[in-house]
Simulated scan of single mutants.
Amino acid sequence: MPRRAKRVFGRLLSRGFFKGEASQVAPLLLNKIIATADGRVGRIVEVEAYEGARDEAAHSFRGVTPRTRVMFAEPGHLYVYFSYGMHWCSNIVCAPVGVGSAVLLRALEPIANLDAMRQARGPRIVDRDLCRGPGRLTQALGLTGADTGMDVLDATSPVGIYDDGVPPPPHNRGLPRIGISRARELPWRWIVPGNAFVSRGA
């Protein structure tokens, strides 16, 4: 994604926000805003945590590889990977350098420039399905593997994550993660309860 000036939607999150483990950061990311340089904006309504060496489902479980190197880098960077040879998925790196922890962005509630999202996803896609699921979300925002390593906390970056004052849901319990075969028992998925844009059956 090219670097351009982007619109601001509240306060850009700080590096410190992402320095906890993914299972701590993930529920706090709910109701935060992600915005791109061309005005595509969504509210984060579903996330999953993945935590390095203690999480067999994490890509970083077996350590640093060319693919996962960014997961062990400074928090606040994008990790975008290709899933099942079909679509890209977007994660935000968490925890101190060297840990290999990240939060998968699973669903957004679209807020602005839905026309650009439809252009990326397909003109007949209904609003509810524009960003529901990690592959759809990443496609709707126009992100690909070329964006891995992008610093979403840099004010000059083409993608940023903001706090517009809407708090995360209180007393929000974790749910089982989706689409994995290992460590499925960990309750490391969180949603905004009652939101129409979360995954089916969530």
Results as ranks from 00 to 15, higher is better:
6 K>W: 11
8 V>E: 15
10 G>R: 04
14 S>P: 03
14 S>D: 14
16 G>M: 05
18 F>K: 09
20 G>Y: 06
24 Q>P: 03
28 L>G: 02
38 D>P: 05
46 E>Q: 03
48 E>Q: 09
51 E>P: 02
51 E>R: 13
51 E>C: 10
56 E>C: 05
57 A>P: 10
60 S>W: 05
61 F>H: 15
65 T>I: 07
72 F>D: 09
73 A>K: 14
75 P>M: 06
76 G>N: 02
78 L>I: 10
87 H>T: 06
87 H>C: 14
90 S>H: 03
92 I>R: 06
94 C>I: 08
94 C>T: 15
96 P>D: 13
100 G>L: 12
105 L>K: 01
111 I>R: 01
112 A>T: 07
113 N>E: 14
122 G>A: 04
127 D>G: 00
129 D>R: 07
129 D>Y: 13
139 Q>C: 05
140 A>V: 09
141 L>H: 00
141 L>A: 00
142 G>M: 12
149 G>A: 12
151 D>Q: 12
160 G>R: 06
162 Y>L: 05
167 P>M: 08
167 P>H: 07
168 P>G: 06
175 L>R: 15
179 G>E: 13
181 S>E: 09
182 R>I: 03
188 W>D: 13
195 N>G: 08
195 N>Y: 03
198 V>D: 01
200 R>S: 14
201 G>R: 02
202 A>N: 01
